[in-house]
Design a binder for these strands. Structure first.
Length: 230
DNA sequence: GCGACAG
DNA sequence: ATCTTGTCGC
């Protein structure tokens, strides 16, 4: 396990940039008709020297995929907890810009404000593109919570001290919960509902699930149902 | 000093 | 994130 050199110039610059992006984050609902929702994710190739960013846009309320894009770039930043965006956001943003459509909302694989400096990858991407964004992570980064009840839709608040920074949501009965927090132009109150509106029978919301498949497995039918290929 | 630590 | 089949539990 490599030690994280917090004195590294790039790390210091990244943290400084997060402080600036953080000031631009807006946590009120700022969107009209949510019709196109994008899911983004990243995978790696060539021994981890290439990042592969995928974005899939689905249409509400049927969640049918209507657009997608795939971008490959050299990896330029190591994985550092709290600085994930500096490793993945550049490629993801490039992929979103390749779309022929402009999504009304972006669901990211990672956190929004549930972050040490309240600037997770969902905030980062949302602010830079000035588009509504939500973070939907599979694991906790920071915050305290109690295990939510086992039914689909059950949730419990995620706190950092006295601050409510997100929710731990059971998107599927008995499955491990996901961590939802607003990234930009979405409120803490509405974030969970927007994610649930994009979730069917799987743990992850459709946009994210499809983007994940596109980013990892080379082939990947863009059909919302059909069990995972494997 | 000892853990914790998105993907 | 990634290396990887069958198997156990809901």
């Amino acid at each position: 396990m490599p030690t994280i050199d917090t004195s590294d110039e790039r790390v210091a610059a990244a943290i400084a940039e997060q402080q600036e992006l953080r000031a631009r984050v807006r946590l009120h609902d700022d969107y009209s008709e949510l019709q196109l929702v994008a899911g983004v994710d990243a995978g790696f190739e060539a021994d981890g020297t290439l990042i592969r960013a995928a974005v899939v846009v689905v249409r509400l309320p049927d969640l049918a995929p209507v657009d997608y894009a795939l971008v490959r770039q050299p990896v330029t930043f190591p994985y550092v907890p709290g600085l994930l965006a500096f490793r993945e956001a550049p490629a993801i943003i490039a992929a979103i810009r390749q779309l022929r459509t402009t999504p009304d909302l972006i669901i990211c694989d990672g956190h929004g404000i549930a972050h040490p400096r309240r600037c997770g990858i969902a905030c980062h991407i949302g602010v830079l593109l000035d588009l509504p964004a939500i973070g939907c992570a599979k694991q906790r980064l920071i915050g305290r919570f109690t295990e939510p009840l086992p039914e689909r839709g059950d949730r419990s608040p995620l706190y950092d001290g006295d601050d409510l920074i997100g929710w731990v949501v059971r998107t599927r009965a008995t499955a491990r919960p996901v961590f939802i927090s607003p990234g930009h132009r979405v409120s803490l109150e509405r974030a969970p509902d927007l994610v649930m509106a994009c979730t069917t029978r799987f743990r992850l919301p459709e946009p994210t699930r499809l983007a994940h498949r596109l980013a990892s497995h080379d082939d990947a039918p863009l059909t919302s149902d059909s069990p995972p290929l494997l």
